[in-house]
Design a protein around this nucleic acid. Structure first.
Lengths: 221, 221, 221, 221
DNA sequence: TATGAATGAGTCTTCATTCAT
DNA sequence: TATGAATGAAGACTCATTCAT
């Protein structure tokens, strides 16, 4: 009888809580977790909703479809970084080598070591099944990222810091270790403990060293 | 019992008639194609069966489930890679730089540019969903590959060709462009035409150049 | 309490501000449009509310359910049709043929070509799903309409203008083209452009001609 | 314990019965019933399957979608009649009046008085919601039917039996009572008993009489 | 062994209805 | 009264798996 009244009032979450402002963020957060953990098609929208503490219907109130939800996750976690980066790089005053170091460090801090890295892994994993997602990612992430790196390299070449490199390939040379790291961390590394890269920062460091060494126009004695 | 051995095997298999013993292989082959092309969950067992020229029911006669089929595909396609390489490298006589160049060229010829690259992509993509496959891959492919590259680098360091590098990371430095290439080719590159790397061999070339340049103990003047 | 009555009602309702009392009417009006346009099940209550300029919740304040809304729409739109006609016909002085022509022309002008024809279409379409509406319509519209036509024909027969026809069927003979027109206009005609009747007035004309010709007791030479 | 064995073996319908040949027909039959009874969107595919004694999945084995199921129902019950009719009319030897009488009688026997009449009612009711269905019906039923009637009237005009009528409208003049009858039977008539047309054949008879009388070029004295 | 018809649990999505504010 | 965020019960359709033949 009186049991109801003895229930801890803090646990008594009201059934219908109105928090329009907070919903999208909570859903996006839950979705990021699940997409990264299980992949796109293996993630169930019910689960996302449940983890965000709402009903399935509510999810569709904020995101018209599963794909749109995913796109929003990408925007929220990756795409939104480019404006800032663009500004930072336009204002950057150091050498191009410093710039490249900074770029990779910043990428690592904001994406590489965060859950967001799982998104790239996911996209690469499921690109073939969801061309729409692949295209979207291509437009919203790959292209701007590419442009960013390209600008740095061009700057270095123009200033004489870097050798005149084939730009298209040089860009991928910078991308490769980042992509590798994201893939590795979120696949092999996440499974076989033994496969994990034990010090990714240091690995990145070394990559940049080797890269800059290889790209430099003159070598220190 | 002895019937099988008394039949002339070449005459026994008319072109269009399928032999029972060949079935699993044909299924595995079809499955490899489709898994690589479309990923695990997007591959329909009907399609696999159809491509192998048998009925859906037959597939389940040989593989108790789709997951088992997947595991069999991966196992079937990654065992045979390393013996040859080990021999080759043990017998190699040039410089360590040449050896590294040769290793990557050989990898590209035998795996990178073939369908086999799709397997790595596949494994990395689905690693989280099939931890045991990830482990398996780790043991059968990653470790031997790692050891191979490690040997080359150690050889270079010992001979004074390379700087004394942190081996663990140096190995991944060599891996990164290969992994990157396999992933890219089989995901983004396969979707958005614009995203394709137009000349992978040249890209690899450049990667090795930069790498060797960065790893060399003394720089050419 | 008495505040309401002391307020000048005309000044009290600025153009853009909706009066409470008008709400049900506005909802009914919006619902009529949409039900006629899209049918019962394809009409979304959100849309009705939106078109009426209120929120979905408000709609449910006035009508306990979508079905009730539908019933109210039908009731609202079919009550007021017959009194005028009855008067007109009681006072009519021409021949019965003229009377029939006038009846159909009048029906076309006031119902057939207006939105109201959609209601008949609606009712006939959904009759099975809402038997009580069908009954209601039967009482309020079919019966009076039937009686009206019947009176005209009886008058014609009594005056010797028309042959002695089986009244029950003769009435439906007059109804048929009207029903046909309402159905056609609001279904096939509204979809496939090619299916539209390009000149309904002329069609009706021809129908009456044929009808009167067929019903006439003596034929002109 | 022994209850299971005491069950009437005739009621023991095996769970998985293989009757590929019979399935489509059984499904079509069940679908016709339900579509006519409840309309297109209110009919649930599960129900259709259940009534046909199969599972939902089986239905989709034979008909790729609900719309396709409906189209098949239309073809099975209406569209398939046109080839026969065309032949019959091409071979017809009597007067055009006889031909028209025969056409309507035949229509009544094969469609009008059967469940198939409900299909037309259904299509007209839901045309707006399902343009695809409306178009389909327009092509497969309306057009051929139109052509058929048109041919009869043209024949009558050419032979001098009928007055030179505006063909487009004359055709609808013939259609109107048929459409009316199908609508009425399946909406008002199916609900309010009082609304039913008590002798449809006689009604049709009268319609044709009036029609032919009105269309005839010379009138009997 | 081989087949392929049959199954039914599972998936995304819609929408009438409720209810805290 | 009025709002509109939240709900959850359906619904169409898919597909790995089963099983009678």
């Amino acid at each position: 009888m009186s049991t109801a009244s003895t229930i801890n009032p803090q646990e008594q979450t009201p059934k219908r809580e109105r928090r329009k402002e907070a919903r999208p963020g909570e859903l996006l957060d839950a979705a990021l977790d699940l997409f990264v953990e299980k992949g796109f098609s293996a993630t169930r929208v019910d689960e996302v909703a449940a983890r965000a503490g709402v009903s399935k219907g509510t999810l569709f109130l904020y995101f018209p479809s599963k794909v749109d939800l995913f796109k929003a996750v990408v925007r929220e976690n990756i795409a939104h970084l480019f404006p800032t980066w663009n500004e930072e790089f336009n204002a950057f005053e150091g050498t191009s080598a410093e710039m490249l170091r900074y770029a990779m460090a910043s990428w690592w801090a904001r994406i590489g070591k965060t859950r967001a890295s799982g998104i790239t892994k996911l996209v690469m994993s499921e690109a073939q099944n969801f061309p729409e997602i692949a295209d979207f990612y291509q437009q919203e992430v790959i292209k701007p990222g590419n442009a960013l790196i390209r600008k740095i390299i061009e700057r270095g070449i123009q200033s004489g810091e870097f050798r005149p490199l084939a730009l298209d390939h040089a860009v991928y040379t910078v991308f490769a270790p980042m992509i590798f790291l994201m893939m590795w961390k979120n696949s092999m590394g996440a499974c076989a403990a033994s496969a994990d890269i034990n010090d990714p920062e240091q690995f990145l460091q070394m990559q940049v060293d080797v890269l800059l060494y290889g790209m430099a126009s003159t070598k220190p004695t």
